[in-house]
Amino acid sequence: MKGEEWYQTDEVAQEYDAKRFSRGGRLIDRREKRAVLEALNPLEDRKVLEIACGTGRFTVMLAERGADIVGLDISSAMMTQGREKARAAGVADHIEFLRGDAARLPFPDDHFDTVFAMRFFHLADTPAKFLAEMCRVSKGQVFFDTFNDRSTRVLYNWLLPMGSRLYGREEVERLIDGAGLTLADASHDFVLPYGFYRKIPNRLAGAFRSVDTAVGDTPLGTHLASVSYWNAHV
């Protein structure tokens, strides 16, 4: 995985949310959470596995809505932040945080109703293997996002120290088919890359987002979207 050592440090874990989801990044956080809720609802009494749960911002949100959820991550430091969030929200008894490898999930076949991963596949060195494992342990739904190769993310990617893996729609569809999944639906968003929003004040983000959304609702915007959400079924 790209950036694996960097990602596991205590310093990065402690600053992760503040660096990515403050300023205009608040808008990104809201949009990603809405995408997850729209795809995974209803959640009451569902068994959910989150791959690369990080600091638990999705994990805790889903537990608050009735899911029994396992959050798996390679970083103990990140999950420490997640456990603190879960205790503060009063949902620690609905979440198990587990350190593990997404390429070798420690669960039997068909163990979860839903398996999902956000901000994971752009770091994946073997995406087919990861997606196959997600499919194996899910008896229903697999949901994930990708960063796209026909977007402004390509320009932004040059500035990143470790880069990101970018995907085209045909590649994702091949991955889904190869894992034995059926694509139920997909949505595409953010003509402007995430990094742009994180650099501007929150008070300006809404105005840029309005333009972004207007362009994104056109065929050209769909083509240029930097992020895609993929909802597949076993």
Rank of each mutant, 00 (worst) to 15 (best):
M61Y: 05
Y156T: 09
L220W: 12
N202M: 09
N148H: 13
K2L: 15
G90W: 10
L204C: 06
F196A: 06
Y167A: 01
F144Y: 05
D17P: 04
L123I: 04
D125N: 15
A205S: 14
G221W: 01
D101P: 00
R119V: 06
L123D: 14
A89Y: 06
A179Y: 09
T218S: 06
A232T: 04
G82M: 11
R31E: 14
M118V: 12
L175Q: 05
T182A: 11
V36M: 13
V227Q: 06
D185C: 09
R46K: 15
V215W: 14
V191R: 09
P201F: 06
S226C: 11
D177S: 15
L224K: 05
A117V: 06
A102P: 06
D125Q: 15
K19V: 10
L40M: 13
G100A: 01
H188W: 15
G206E: 13
T213W: 12
G66F: 05
R198Q: 14
C53L: 04
W6Y: 11
M61V: 07
L166H: 00
A225K: 02
S22T: 08
L123H: 15
V154M: 08
A128I: 01
R20W: 10
P219S: 02
T55H: 03
A89L: 08
E4P: 01
Y229S: 01
G163P: 04
D29V: 06
R34K: 13
L224C: 08
V172A: 04
A225Y: 01
E84W: 00
G100S: 02
T80I: 12
V36Q: 10
V227M: 08
